[in-house]
Amino acid sequence: MSLETLTSVPTLGVIYAKAALPSLPGPSGSAAPGELPDRSLRLTGHTVDRHDLLQYERICGFNNSDVLPHTYPHVVGFPLQMQLMSHKDFPLPLMGLVHVENVITVHREVRFDEELEITVTAQNLRAHPKGTVVDLVTEVDVAGERVWDGRSTYLARGRGDAEATRGEQPPSIPTGAAAAKWSLPADLGRTYGFASGDINPIHMSAPTAKAMGFPRAIAHGMWTYARTLAAIGPVTSGPGTSHVWFKKPVLLPGKVDLVIDKDDRDGSVVAGLRNSRTPATEHLVLTLS
């Protein structure tokens, strides 16, 4: 496995712009069709801008803190994921990939002023009933210590394999009264997009989302993930593992209900977001342990 070292965070706007251009022949030595490139990307010497962190915390509902929220290292590693997937030798088209699942493990609290080393690798390209899926694995180290890791699963829709496994399935969404009701504004995609750097057109406005096949802009899945964790409470900043399954997208503007089921015996949590007007429409299911 070759390793490409970066000294600055890739610019997502440039990556999206290049991904929108017609594909060109791959470079010499590129992966064969259906194979993942034998390459990892590593960002070294990165420290988090405290202003950016506080803005993220505010938008996602976390308390202001110098400790990185559970989901924040994903924000730093996401541009490396995108750069890896946008390369000509990546076997799936970047535009149109759907983020369907995410697992995060926080091994210890991480402060904004710690120097991070972030490594991203594509793994486990496989068939899915609705197309092809791939995992982007992100690992965060501080002074040689693994402090955080995450696995993002993306689906490329297409001819699938009805016999393919879907992997671990989510628990049922909790039932009963909502723990909270949120009204999400039309500009939420832009607000979170500018804070996180993820300016995918499907989130930024109704016209750009319509060009990608959506009736209106949709909320970022990672915002719904982070907002749900923030509502669970400060416990999510400490060591633990969360697993989220993204289901139906949240159209903006929109209204969602948060539902939570906590197990007092071991502190584990199952949470979900459902549509306020049509509760049968589920947006995500999340476990935390």
Rank of each mutant, 00 (worst) to 15 (best):
Leu12Val: 03
Val14Asp: 14
Val14Arg: 15
Lys18Pro: 09
Ala19Val: 02
Pro22Val: 03
Pro27Met: 10
Ser30Lys: 03
Ala31Cys: 00
Glu35Pro: 00
Pro37Met: 00
Ser40Asn: 10
Thr47Trp: 09
Asp49Trp: 00
His51Val: 15
Leu54Thr: 11
Leu54Ala: 13
Leu54Arg: 14
Tyr56Ala: 07
Glu57Ile: 00
Cys60His: 04
Pro69Gln: 05
Leu80Ile: 04
Gln81Met: 12
Met82Trp: 01
Met85Gln: 04
Gly96Asn: 01
Glu101His: 14
His107Ile: 01
Glu109Trp: 10
Glu109Lys: 14
Phe112Asn: 09
Leu116Gln: 02
Thr119Gly: 04
Val120Tyr: 01
Ala122Ile: 00
Gln123Lys: 15
Gln123Asp: 14
Leu125Asp: 05
Arg126Ser: 06
Ala127Ile: 12
His128Glu: 11
Val133Ile: 15
Val134Tyr: 04
Asp135Glu: 15
Thr138Gly: 08
Glu139Trp: 00
Asp141Ala: 11
Glu145Met: 06
Asp149Phe: 07
Leu155Ile: 10
Glu163Ala: 15
Thr165Cys: 12
Pro170Gln: 13
Ile173Val: 15
Ala180Gln: 12
Lys181His: 08
Trp182Ser: 06
Pro185Cys: 03
Arg190Tyr: 01
Gly193Leu: 00
Ala195Thr: 02
Asp198Leu: 04
Ser205Gln: 11
Ala206Met: 13
Pro207Leu: 11
Pro215Gln: 14
Ile218Gln: 03
Gly221Glu: 03
Trp223Glu: 08
Thr224Gln: 08
Thr228Ser: 13
Pro234Leu: 07
Ser237Trp: 00
Pro239Leu: 13
Thr241Asn: 00
Ser242Asp: 00
Val244His: 05
Val244Ile: 15
Leu252Gly: 01
Val256Asp: 01
Asp257Leu: 10
Ile260Arg: 10
Lys262Leu: 11
Val269Arg: 05
Val269Asn: 03
Val270Trp: 04
Ser276Ala: 15
Arg277Gln: 14
Ala280Leu: 08
His283Val: 06
